[in-house]
Design a protein around this nucleic acid. Structure first.
Lengths: 341, 341
DNA sequence: TATCAACACGAAACCGTTTTCGTGCCTATT
DNA sequence: AATAGGCACGAAAACGGTTTCGTGTTGATA
């Protein structure tokens, strides 16, 4: 026996008052007399009345849902960002609808459009790799044109005027390299992705800047570009055998971990012969042997910041006139030192 | 200049027809004449009309949203389950609303109630640790009483009649232990959580059964209970020093990884002196040195199964009469062999 | 020519709220 | 006694769709 949800109409009928009276009574409106209010509230409590979210959303044109679109959920960094978003949003009574773009432009577009049709009050988006390559942001333009607030995080673009929260990748990379230099390292290699994302480039820039600052020449041969899935260790193996370098900065955790493993197999001492620093301080860095020094990106803080900016825009609804004051918040990365340096 | 979304009413006014005509024309209803239909569709396309999801949901009493409540999102296993859910659901046009219970009973209740008020068509839930301890499932009862379909995964309970998808933890543990025995191991330790979850218990049961089957006595001293965050390595250190054992089965990945690290520090050879097998084949197992043999739980498959069962129930809406036919699907775990055994 | 179906479309109810604007009644004031 | 004002409540529109049930027009048929 299924118990249907009780509605305002049900209560009204049962108590022989009008729907409006019930609605007002439940909101403690002063319009309603003390005793009827109490009667209604008691009845509502008894039958466990809860307003229908959908109806409320339709009427108020506010869903209290925020849409999050991320490239990948099985990825520590995005997951921590998501946690930051979820925690903050939840604490303010917002729910989170997630869609995973899977690094695909098409999926990103489809999901954006789907959610934009009333399902959410605002977006938090980390661009997919494909979108960044194509540089096609019309789907986002459409969203912002409709007055739906958007916050971009990590993978951002200048093309869309909106709030952003990013990590100072360039500075972080610089500082990491400088730290290596201070430790007496001279030939510092750089592991990056073939598939160039905005962030990889920023990190490379920081790498170069640090070298330049300390008068160390940039050497093409010390940059190793690896595909996303590098099951074939060929590339890196020959790299390790042919090149002589005494430190590595990697744009991600995996490349660094695999590099360390290989280095050990080849008999190098870590950090004596080769030091390693990886971007993204995930669980791999923490539990690796030796522990991998890593650049912590503070994903949770990033997520929280993004959520705060978004909800701020949602609630202080668009000052349509001067809609130009968008902010970009920068999360400072920090170097977590472990045994690999 | 914000462009408001165009509605049926707008189109109707502009084209001087009724709202119903527009609605029907856009759905290719045969009621509408060829030319008006074309006119309307052309206009709609031009102005990029998209129906408002909320309004459609209210009218149809179907949101095409499914609610997922998980204990923790920054956890590889749950993340993979979530990916399975999301992929499958998305492919069928469903969106996913996630709430994280953070292992807290209260948060689970709040989130469940929030979503149950019309926001979703069904739930996929992994119970929080606290809920399993308290054994209070009234919030779920209320949901199922309303006719909202629920699928429980991994952390389930017999108290609630609904579809479930679980892993055969007992058998998986048995097989792992038997594998160790076949490799000549005799004194097999078991690492578990102090905080007893249903799954830990099942795994312990499997561990015991395997021992019994091979005539090996169960020894209390070989069971090590560790707190969730075991920053103090005291416990495990003394355990390693005092006990002599030649293999370890751990209910999670972390305990196994830390155990391996400790064993190596203490000069043990892996897998020569001590073999390790951990539950959950996450990235840690894969990238550990030596690679950790692990019991893969196939989270993605689990998520997909859960989503399939749920959507099936949603779409073949409740045969209210014989509402008793709930299924429990069992996902087979498999042992991934690496260097630690 | 009267009848009737088929066709093309519109009116209106409905989903469950919120909110504005009446309105009837009671009490206090002059 | 007439008026004003406040109180307590209801009617109805609105949010943006879907869907049922008319209804007027047309062309074919008897």
């Amino acid at each position: 026996m299924i118990r249907r949800k009780v509605t305002l109409k049900d209560i009204a009928r049962e108590l022989d008052v009008s729907i409006s009276t019930v609605s007002k009574a439940l909101k403690n409106s002063s319009e309603i007399g003390r005793d009827t209010r109490d009667r209604i509230q008691a009845f509502a409590r008894l039958y466990n009345y809860k307003p229908n979210n959908i109806a409320v959303s339709l009427k108020n044109k506010r869903t209290r849902n925020i849409g999050v679109i991320i490239p990948d959920i099985v990825h520590h960094f995005f997951t921590t960002v998501f946690r930051g978003i979820e925690k903050y949003a939840n604490s303010l009574g917002y729910n989170v609808i997630v869609c995973v773009s899977d690094e695909s432009f098409d999926k990103e577009v489809i999901n954006t459009e789907l959610l934009a049709n009333g399902s959410i009050d605002g977006f938090i988006i980390g661009l997919s790799a494909e979108t960044q390559e194509k540089q096609d942001y019309t789907h986002l333009k459409e969203v912002t044109d409709q007055g739906i607030p958007v916050v971009l995080f990590d993978r951002v673009t200048e093309e869309i005027p909106c709030d952003k929260v990013i990590i100072d990748d360039e500075t972080a990379a610089m500082e990491a390299v400088e730290f290596l230099i201070q430790n007496g390292k001279k030939r510092i290699a750089f592991f990056t992705t073939t598939h160039k994302l905005g962030v990889s480039e920023k990190r490379e820039k920081g790498y170069c800047k640090a070298l330049a600052k300390h008068g160390i020449p940039f050497r093409e041969e010390l940059v190793l570009e690896l595909p996303f899935q590098f099951e074939e260790e060929q590339l890196s193996r020959s790299f390790f055998q042919n090149q002589s370098f005494d430190a590595v900065l990697s744009v991600n955790e995996i490349f660094a971990i695999r590099g360390m493993r290989l280095a050990r197999e080849l008999g190098y001492d870590i950090p004596g012969d080769i030091s390693f620093i990886g971007f993204t301080d995930g669980i791999l860095s923490k539990y690796a042997v030796p522990g991998l020094s890593a650049i912590a990106q503070h994903g949770e803080q990033m997520g929280e910041t993004a959520a705060r900016m978004l909800i701020d825009k949602i609630e202080n609804e668009y000052d349509e006139t001067d809609s130009g004051n968008y902010r970009t918040e920068i999360i400072q990365a920090s170097l977590v030192k472990r045994q690999s340096t």
